[in-house]
Design a protein around this nucleic acid. Structure first.
Lengths: 200, 200
DNA sequence: GACATAATAGGAACACGTTTCACTTCGTCC
DNA sequence: GGACGAAGTGAAACGTGTTCCTATTATGTC
């Protein structure tokens, strides 16, 4: 696996290049959504994005980088769409579960896409650290905001709890993606975990 | 990915067959230990186990099945070695941490092997459910026993806590394996998580 | 506008997981 | 002991991620 990074949108000079990058990610999402991890074939992505295979590899040094970058973009999109909406719920537990349920439902509405992205996320190695880190930060931000809706300083404990919740959520998601847990159990297990962690 | 199962030791008739299976798993562990996931190449495993490639695939229908089965054998070995030793510690928290630290230290002493096995575990899909389930049960048994050392009935809450701990541990392990978390942080993060879950 | 440089296209080639197939060996039943 | 099916061998072939190479096209500089 190569050690280079994916090209981010910001460091791309021309509009044509940003266009290529966008077409590549769009094709990736479309293929993943339709057939999951295996359907995201580099030749197919390149063809569908109207880009040469070599160019695809110039933008994203591996299939994993590509998928994790796509995941990042989707996550940002989802986060941006809900950034300014207050999360309903009287307790941290309720708000966190609202957030998790909403996100989980979104993921479960496109199982193939979720499978592809989760697989990539879990398979990624150190060379994908940057892309992974971006996703992790986003996730933690969303969770701590749900726990602590005002913009008061977030406590260390909140951060720790958010990390544990994120870990459990990821494991559970992997279980669902790989067919070991059914959709309903994801919610149930998250509720149990959140209940144990946020006793208010 | 094929849907067949790995051949278990019990369902193998002859001693020659059990020998083949053992040689295959030994070769797998040796290669993984030396070079990690990528070094476990099916041709190399077959060659080193003195078995034809087709035979290897008859015993283990994919590289993932092979690695997860190897993981299962290692886990059983580790569990059997410590089954009857009482776990030191005055509280559930201490005992669980003792167990986690001992296991984590064992894993970290062979990073390549751990990388290979964890990668396989996280990448596995539904066709590997049996092999995965065996590992999951073992892990949960070990954790609930640490939490609840007598053989008193294990409560539902204990089981739920054990599952959450296992989830966090897996996520953290993945972080370590993929170079996102260093070895010391694994312990620290597990301690925080266990502290949140077992407040005694 | 001419040129240097970088980016892209197009496609061949390689690596490794997986499949396939023709053949041989082994175990079992009569 | 021979016949038969299951298991094993050996090698070729395929699919897909990845790399590499050359020709062509943009892009920026004087």
């Amino acid at each position: 696996m190569s050690t280079a990074n994916s090209l981010t949108d910001e460091e791309l000079g021309s509009a044509a290049q940003r266009g290529r990058r966008k077409r590549i990610l769009d094709a990736t999402i479309a293929l993943a959504s339709q057939g999951g991890f295996d359907a995201v074939q580099m030749r197919t992505v390149a063809e569908q994005a109207d880009v040469a295979l070599g160019t695809l590899y110039r933008y994203f040094p591996s299939k994993i980088h590509l998928l994790v970058s796509a995941l990042g973009r989707e996550f940002e999109r989802a986060e941006a769409a809900t950034r300014d909406k207050p999360i309903p719920g009287d307790t941290a537990h309720e708000r966190v579960m609202f957030l998790l349920n909403r996100t989980t439902k979104g993921l479960q509405s496109d199982p193939h896409l979720t499978e592809a992205l989760t697989r990539a996320f879990m398979f990624a190695d150190a060379s994908v650290a940057n892309e992974i880190h971006a996703v992790g930060m986003l996730l933690n931000t969303m969770l701590t905001r749900a726990m602590n809706p005002g913009s008061e300083a977030t406590s260390d404990e909140d951060v720790a709890v958010a990390r544990v919740i994120a870990d459990v959520w990821l494991s559970t998601l992997v279980g669902w993606v790989t067919g070991r847990t059914n959709a309903g159990d994801v919610s149930k297990r998250m509720d149990v975990a959140v209940g144990l962690l946020l006793r208010d």
